[in-house]
Design a protein around this nucleic acid. Structure first.
Lengths: 351, 351
DNA sequence: TCAGAGAATGTAAACGTTTACATCGGCGAA
DNA sequence: TTCGCCGATGTAAACGTTTACATTCTCTGA
């Protein structure tokens, strides 16, 4: 099958130790010997056996990525960022998705043991204590958008609360006093944070307790579509809606369109995530932009840094800012879609 | 760090061979011995070192996944399907994305050597010969939506051509005689197949050579947005447009909306992919549905089957059907979006 | 010329498994 | 009783690396 280091050594007329030294760039070797070894390795298409190597070095040069049961733009963007950073550092990615429950996640975790040097975990529907109980102690771990408990693990997440508050304040600034909210899944961390941001902003705006303006959703377009009817039924009728993500906001837009309710004339709409199509909606959707890819890349970079620091590393927490993007659906005047083509230069969506 | 098989053996008062036999379910062991060993392993949280194991067995129980530089729904759905099938068979996924050019892909390929038992490759912008030159011979490989050359490798892809033809015929059936086409990237396999389907259907419909009705796009919403103006400038003006994917179709819808061109009244629009939001557009977008997740899952299943068959396996090619979904943008009457919620029960998009 | 330093290279012992083979009982048949 | 068989278990040799240590070679300075 594949050539071993021994065969390379024989072909180059040296010992295996020398081959190893040349290929790893360690220890002193004569220029000419190095050339001979490299030539032999090339000729035999030699690739070191990672298993044998990790047996000795206790390093696998791979990072495990645990993802929850989520789809769409978020998922792929996160992996993209993580992959970019990992590749730059010469690391490989062991990906495992679709962890609905604890048992599945635990199984996936076990399977990763010995295969990876560290872990990136994104699990927005698992609470902190449960998480830390299942995570291997002493392993470099980076938590992404998780409910974090204390300072046990490194973590990084998006300023969901701040972003949500910014959207609500934006709507309030346009004169809206009754702002409804379509929430995400009750057990989802991001959704909970966004809800908090909404409540905080409503309260600080003097809106009083606005629990009756909260409509349950589940992040799908359809739940947004359904929520539209509920909101319109409220008395007095809200003049604005903030949906916890863009998918639901799009559902809202669709429903309003069908019902003949004008946006933003009759009701203003805001979303969260700023997914690429947001600006192509009718009217263009106001949203809160977050760079998921950047989140993933940053997570990987920090994890690798922690790996290098070893035991000297101290876990810390980081929050990435979210940026308000005002478009017409909230009542702002906005330029034509392609003019603000933030994504255009880097997106290349396959069919 | 982690317990070794030797420690488990000592704890259970048996030899390492017995521990191995118990944990792998091979060879005869007494019921009571098995219990003792399993208890010890559990207590010590023993997990076999995969590297050491693969050194002997020459199996890694991992599959490499090579993905091109693509984003969005397609990417994540493909991984989701692949992951589901792999997990069911107890395999792990080594994912590597963003392979713009050959060199990158080759590097990624080398890094996978010895780490994986097989490979799933999706590389729509690489031609067949280039591909087979870089792929390791004798390795189980499954090609996904690639330009396939001969029967050297297993492959599986979507009926792009048939789906495109179906859409064009659908539009023709509604009375349209001048049907424009917004193409995908010139070097993209899917895009090329869809273009072929378009041309074939136009020709067979008696439309004659319609090259002047083809507008270049690149699968982004923005390119669709730009294409709208070009199409409207054609004389005589086309009465329908088929975009090579939904993103571009959405760009078209957006542009038409702004220009006051009614869809489907003034011009009919059709897309490809049936992405989840398609039905929530205004008007709901007619498209061609393909199950990317199913494609991925099927690929993985076939790869694992090939792995089991070993040398007895003969490569074969498979094509997955594409289904026309007629909605209002093409002039069909359609039910309200949520009524046809094919995705609703399984989608749970995270922020 | 030679001692000795230090560079270049070789030798062999790990690393943690699996597995072919050896060993050891116990049991039924001769 | 003894032989042979078979089920249960132990022993040790791989697998392909890295690396501590040993060895050899090549200078330099006295």
């Amino acid at each position: 099958m594949s050539a071993t280091i021994r065969e390379v050594a024989r072909a180059a007329g040296v010992s295996v130790a020398t081959v190893s030294r040349v290929l790893n760039g360690k220890g002193p070797v004569r220029e000419v010997t190095g050339r001979r070894v490299r030539a032999a390795a090339e000729r035999l298409r030699y690739v070191p056996h990672v298993g044998a190597r990790s047996l000795i070095t206790r390093r696998t040069h791979a990072i495990g990525v645990l993802l929850p049961d989520l789809f769409g733009e978020f998922f792929s963007e996160a992996i993209r960022g993580i992959d970019r950073a990992a590749r730059a550092a010469g690391y490989q990615l062991l990906v495992s998705g679709s962890h609905g429950d604890r048992a599945q996640a635990q199984t996936a975790l076990r399977a990763m043991r010995g295969r990876v040097d560290g872990l990136v975990v994104m699990s927005p529907s698992v609470d902190g204590p449960t998480l830390s109980a299942n995570l291997p102690e002493g392993w470099p771990v980076m938590l992404l958008n998780c409910a974090v408990d204390g300072a046990a693990f490194d973590s990084i997440n998006i300023d969901n609360e701040g972003g949500a508050a910014a959207m609500v304040k934006h709507l309030a600034g346009l004169g809206h006093r009754r702002i409804a909210h379509v929430t995400g899944p009750a057990d989802n961390w991001d959704a909970k944070e966004r809800l908090r941001g909404y409540r905080r902003a409503v309260l600080s705006g003097g809106g009083g307790d606005a629990r009756e303006l909260e409509v349950p959703g589940d992040f799908t377009e359809e739940s947004g579509y359904r929520a539209a009817r509920l909101v319109l039924g409220m008395r007095p009728r809200p003049t604005a809606i903030f949906a916890a993500n863009d998918s639901m906001a799009i559902g809202l837009l669709c429903a309003f369109q069908e019902m003949g309710v004008r946006v933003p004339g009759d009701i203003a709409v805001g979303g969260f995530d700023d997914i690429p199509i947001a600006r192509f909606m009718t009217p263009p959707l106001s949203s809160v932009a977050v760079s998921i890819a950047a989140l993933g890349a940053r997570a990987m970079e920090r994890l690798l840094a922690a790996l290098r620091d070893g035991s000297r590393h101290v876990p810390c927490h980081e929050t990435l800012p979210a940026r308000l993007v005002a478009r017409r659906s909230s009542g702002s005047r906005s330029s034509k879609p392609p003019a603000s083509s933030r994504h255009a230069h880097k997106r290349r969506k396959d069919p």
